[in-house]
Simulated scan of single mutants.
Amino acid sequence: MNLTGGIVLYAVLWFLTLFVLLPIGQVSQAEAGEVVPGTPAGAPANPMLGRKMAWATAISAVLWAGCAYLILGGVISREDIMQLDQLVR
Score class of each variant (00 low, 15 high):
Trp64Thr: 03
Pro47Tyr: 13
Ala43Asp: 13
Gly74Phe: 01
Trp14Gln: 01
Pro40Phe: 02
Ala41Glu: 03
Arg51Gly: 12
Ser28Phe: 08
Asn2Leu: 04
Leu72Ala: 11
Gly6Lys: 08
Val88Asn: 09
Pro47Ala: 08
Glu34Gly: 00
Leu22Glu: 08
Glu79Pro: 13
Ala65Cys: 12
Val75Gly: 03
Val12Cys: 07
Ile7Pro: 15
Pro44Trp: 15
Gln29Asp: 08
Gly73Arg: 08
Met48Cys: 06
Ile76Lys: 07
Met53Thr: 10
Gly74Gln: 04
Ala58Lys: 09
Gly38Ser: 10
Leu16Asp: 02
Gly50Phe: 13
Thr57Phe: 15
Ser77Tyr: 03
Ala54Arg: 11
Gly73Val: 08
Leu84Cys: 03
Gln83Ala: 07
Gly50Lys: 05
Leu13Gly: 02
Glu31Gly: 09
Val27Asp: 00
Ile71Gly: 04
Trp55Arg: 01
Asp85Tyr: 12
Lys52Pro: 08
Glu31Ser: 08
Leu63Tyr: 02
Thr39Gly: 12
Gly38Val: 10
Arg51Trp: 03
Thr17Leu: 00
Val62Asp: 00
Leu87Pro: 00
Leu18His: 04
Val75Glu: 02
Val20Gln: 07
Ala43Gly: 10
Gln83Met: 07
Asn46Asp: 15
Ala56Met: 00
Asn2Ile: 05
Lys52Tyr: 02
Thr17Ser: 07
Gly66Val: 06
Val20Asp: 00
Tyr10Leu: 15
Cys67Asn: 11
Leu87Gly: 01
Gly73Asp: 07
Trp64Gln: 12
Met53Cys: 11
Ile81His: 00
Val36Lys: 08
Gly73Tyr: 05
Gly6Thr: 09
Ser77Lys: 05
Gly66Lys: 14
Ala68Ser: 15
Tyr10Arg: 11
Asp85Gly: 06
Lys52Ala: 03
Pro47Ser: 06
Leu13Asn: 01
Leu70Arg: 12
Met53Trp: 08
Pro47Val: 10
Pro23His: 04
Gly42Cys: 06
Ile81Pro: 00
Gly5Pro: 14
Leu49Cys: 06
Tyr10Asn: 09
Gly38Lys: 05
Asn46His: 13
Gln86Gly: 02
Asp80Arg: 02
Val62Pro: 00
Val8Leu: 14
Ala68Leu: 12
Ser60Ala: 11
Leu3Gly: 03
Cys67Gly: 06
Leu9Asp: 06
Leu87Ile: 05
Gly42Leu: 13
Gly5Lys: 04
Ser60Cys: 10
Leu16Met: 11
Leu49Thr: 14
Ala45Pro: 12
Leu72Met: 08
Ala61Thr: 11
Gly25Glu: 13
Leu21Phe: 05
Met1Ala: 15
Ala45Phe: 14
Leu16Pro: 10
Ala30Leu: 11
Arg51Thr: 14
Gly5Glu: 10
Leu3Pro: 08
